[in-house]
Structure formats: structure tokens, C-alpha cells
Design a protein around this nucleic acid. Structure first.
Lengths: 186, 186
DNA sequence: ACCGTTTATGCAACTAGTTGCACAAGGTGG
DNA sequence: CCACCTTGTGCAACTAGTTGCATAAACGGT
């Protein structure tokens, strides 16, 4: 149940409309909690019904009209409660690793090209994170807020670094493998 | 749509009953694709209905009686197709990083203890992976199947290594932070 | 003979996330 | 002036995964 809390965080950082939130999810927050605009609109409705946020009164509510929300005290309290509450880490689910394991049984045909593609995507993402780091976190800043946000960004950078390195190793390994046939023919 | 393929892979490695599969998911496969026994039974039913697997004839089918499955040629073909098919990487969703970002706004109270707990869990998982590596992948093996499986295990080891290091850095940062109050009081 | 635990299979209801589409307002170009 | 594109909001149906519980056989003790 993290989406509502992701939205509360985003709205505390800056009151926004549904579409603005969607865009901000596509950029910063979505890097570790993605959401589509439909999820966001639905959740905004629930949060408003629960009294955690409210529409900014200035704007008239009509379809096709921008409608911005701000967080109410109850929303801030709920976010603080959730942040402090202990949560178990969810097990990862990674289809790519699964495919590699399947390839050990049915053959590696076709996989290599996709590994290469993933490598490129992760390299691009890594470059993007590094740009953000240079732009938003020049050396010498140390406000609490900056510190925490930088820490989150570092996680992103280190994760992408891991993937690029692992994929390069995988491709190097593939180069030495016999070919794409099954290791256990049917 | 990875669960059916995870099951096909497991069944190709060794025909099994629902409960045996559940146990194997708790150990090896579940490290990167977890599933509960209910998911597995449901999926076994679908796979059988679709003609991708079949119950081993030897055993009598009755409630409370073991029922093992094996993969049919159509199942192997489907798995090979899926393995070779290109797939986009899904964006990660990580509540812990989200909580850190929320903490930048509502305060870090309570978070540190959970970071410590996560660190312990990841250290334990890392140790487990390293044991498996020493036990199952002694230096000098290089069959194709071993190579691929080792690669998958290395991903697990490197991921857990990343998390332990990142969490240690986070805790070190927390130690220098003022205290648990919000950076932007309500 | 009975009771409780373990092994094994399974249904039903719920929660979360995704996909596909619909609708409205406002601007732009032919 | 109207057809089309963009911006913005939203519903409905679907897919995937989780939680809680039910059922049944086998086994071990008392």
C-alpha cells in the first residue's frame, strides 16, 4: 500500500493536479515507484474521500479543468505514521533472471539480443541519474532534506551500476557458450 | 506473466507435485520469483487445462493425495518461445526508498531502526547466497547449465551486496543528521 | 479408539496494478 | 467554422498476487 503515500509525499513537496503528479511520477518519484495517470486519479479520489487531502478551492471543478490538491494535517500524520512503521522487504521478482534460468534448460536462443538491449537501457538510465546528481547535488550541500534525497538517488545510481556490470559479465559469458541450443534436448 | 514460465522451468528441471514446487520456490527459484502455494496450485490447474503439462499417471488423483506433474512438448515450446521473446524491464517499486523520500518531508523518526533491521536481513540473505555458491559452484566447473545458473546466483549476491553497502551508508548518514523531526514542520 | 499434528490440495474473496477507452475544453490550421 | 490535436480527467474491465480459510489423508502418541 505505497501508492497513496507516494502521492502524499509528492503533494507535500508541492500541491499539484492529477496530470502534474503524473508527470512528476514519470520523472523523479517514478524512478522507484511508478504509477499511471489512472492509478493516480483513482487514488486522489480515495485520498480526498478519506479526508487526507483536499482540492485547492481556487479552481472550479469541471471535467477537463485543472484541479489541484493539497495535503491536510490528517494526511501528513498518516504519512508520518507510515514512514515510521516497520515493513518487511518484499521479495524481488525479476523476469530476466527467470529467463536466464529457463535458458539453462530450453536453450539460450534469442536471449543475447535482449540482454544487449537491457544493457543499453540501464546505461541510459545510469547516465540520466548521474546528470541529476551533478545538477542537483553539487558537492558542499548538506541540508537534511538534500542528504536524504541524495541517498535515494545514490541507490538508483548504484543499482543501475550493478545492472550494467552484471549484464556485461553475462554477455561476456554468453560469448564463450557453445550456441543457442538447449542443454537438455527434448 | 512469468509465474507459469517459472513453473514450467521448475518442472523441466524435475517433475514435482504442488507442494514440492512450493518448497522449491521457497528455496532457489523464489529468490527471484516468489510464489505462494495457492498461486502455484491455481497455475498448475491452468497449465494442465492448456495442455502444457500433465499429471503423472502413476499416482491416483484424490484430495490429500500427492499429484505430480511433468511438462509436455507444447509446454517446453511455450517456455522456449517466452525465453527468447524480448521483454521490457519493469520499473522497480521500492517502498523503503519511498519512505526515505517521505522522511525528507515528515521527519526521520522511527526509520533508522527499520533500516538496521533491513540491513540484518540483507546480510543474512547474502551469507546464504555465498554458502550456496561455495557448495554448488566450486571453481573449475563450466558446463553451460552451471554457467547460466551461476550467473543468476551472482546477480543475487551482487544485489544483496549493494543493499548491505547502501544501508550501511544510509545509517552512517543518519548518525550525522540532527534528529527525527520534520524538516518542514506542519 | 481418539486427538492433534503434518502433509497435501484447493476455493473464494480481496487488493493492487494495468489496459483500453471515453469525454470535455481549448487551441490551431485549412 | 470546423476538423483535428493536445491537455486534462475519469470509468470499467482485466490481470496478477495475497490472505484467509476449508478439506482430507496419514501418522504418532496416549
Amino acid at each position: 500500500m505505497s501508492l497513496p503515500h507516494a502521492i502524499l509525499t509528492a503533494l507535500l513537496e508541492k500541491p499539484s493536479s492529477g496530470l502534474e503528479l503524473t508527470r512528476r511520477f514519470d520523472r523523479s518519484i517514478g524512478y522507484f515507484w511508478s504509477a499511471t495517470h489512472q492509478q493516480i486519479y483513482r487514488e486522489l479520489g480515495k485520498l480526498e474521500a478519506d479526508g487526507l487531502i483536499r482540492a485547492l478551492p481556487s479552481e472550479q471543478p469541471a471535467r477537463g479543468q485543472k484541479k489541484s490538491y493539497e495535503v491536510l494535517p490528517a494526511g501528513r500524520a498518516e504519512l508520518a505514521r507510515w514512514t515510521a512503521a516497520s515493513q518487511d522487504p518484499k521479495p524481488h521478482r525479476d523476469p530476466l533472471l527467470l529467463r536466464l534460468r529457463a535458458a539453462a534448460v530450453v536453450g539460450t536462443a534469442g536471449l543475447e539480443a535482449d540482454l544487449r538491449r537491457h544493457l543499453e537501457l540501464h546505461e541510459r538510465q545510469l547516465a540520466e541519474y548521474q546528470e541529476i546528481e551533478q545538477r542537483d547535488f553539487p558537492p558542499g550541500r548538506d541540508g537534511t532534506e538534500d542528504r536524504l534525497r541524495h541517498l535515494v538517488l545514490r541507490a538508483g545510481i548504484d543499482l543501475e551500476t550493478f545492472w550494467t556490470q552484471w549484464l556485461r559479465r553475462a554477455l561476456a559469458d554468453f560469448a564463450e557458450l557453445p550456441a543457442g541450443e538447449p542443454t537438455r534436448p527434448a
